[in-house]
């Protein structure tokens, strides 16, 4: 019994310490913003890394998500004679849930893993220590530009996901299954309210900040991985970053939805 309590206590302390470390890490990255020199150049690179490179995967997943929603929605709504509500179904599902969540998961898979791996290699090859010795704040240099890029990239790609998804829904419902295009698009137009759009962007923004900070933190703490070192530690950090960021995204989605709905 004592061992169990001891183990629970140790894990609780470790979790609290980890959360504290993570919060300090995120705060320091934000605080470093004004002191980071040539930030614009690194921000543009980060926007390219997270944004431009992720456009294909986000739009492809958005297209297929819309196609499937259109297909499933059409057959379900046909049973109730309500195919006219398909546009409403597809647009609200995409805007409120699937676009921010799936878009974020796709960006985490592509850009988040790259961020964790790159920073992990910086750590392994002592480049982060070298930055410290040069008098450069490693958080300002490596994390701040990526964090600022996420603030703009995640919402933009979420909007792109939504638009492509709506087009996918139209393709499957109207072009393939014969639903009138006017019925579909008018339902889409009537369904999406300002609050839905605001919720969509808010989620994208929060997911972006959480995901990028987690991936950066995971790479940054590569040297603390127990039982592994070198390239194996980078591999573990990358996996850990992607998994934790994905879980955190879904948890944050639930919290935001429960507060906003």
């Amino acid at each position: 019994m004592m061992r169990l309590l001891q183990a629970v206590g140790q894990n609780t302390l470790a979790t609290v310490a980890g959360l504290g470390d993570f919060a300090t890490f995120a705060s320091r990255a934000i605080v470093a913003t004004p002191d980071t020199r040539y930030l614009g150049r690194r921000w543009v690179r980060a926007v390219h890394e997270q944004g431009v490179r992720c456009v294909p995967v986000v739009t492809i997943v958005g297209l297929f998500t819309g196609l499937v929603l259109g297909l499933q929605g059409y057959y379900v709504l046909t049973r109730f004679g309500s195919t006219g509500a398909l546009g409403t179904f597809v647009s609200l599902t995409l805007t409120r849930e699937l676009a921010p969540v799936l878009g974020a998961l796709m960006i985490i898979g592509q850009a988040g893993s790259a961020i964790a791996a790159e920073i992990g290699i910086h750590r392994n090859s002592e480049q982060i220590d070298a930055l410290t010795m040069m008098g450069i704040d490693p958080l300002g240099y490596l994390v701040t530009p990526r964090l600022l890029a996420a603030v703009i990239v995640f919402p933009i790609l979420t909007v792109a996901f939504t638009l492509v998804g709506l087009a996918g829904g139209y393709l499957s419902a109207s072009v393939l299954l014969g639903l009138d295009a006017g019925v579909y698009w008018s339902a889409v137009y009537a369904a999406i309210q300002y609050t839905d759009f605001r919720e969509c962007l808010l989620k994208a923004l929060v997911f972006g900040v959480i995901a990028v900070v987690i991936c950066c933190h995971s790479g940054f703490t590569t040297h603390r991985r127990t039982g592994v070192s070198g390239s194996r530690a980078v591999s573990v950090s990358t996996t850990r970053g992607v998994v934790l960021a994905s879980i955190a995204t879904l948890a944050a989605d639930y919290l935001i939805t429960s507060f906003l709905v």
């Binding site: 090859s125 002592e126 480049q127 220590d129 070298a130 010795m133 040069m134």
Partner: peptide
């Protein structure tokens, strides 16, 4: 102060 790392960094 500068530091020359073993692996050059």
């Amino acid at each position: 102060c500068s530091y020359l790392f073993q692996g050059n960094a």
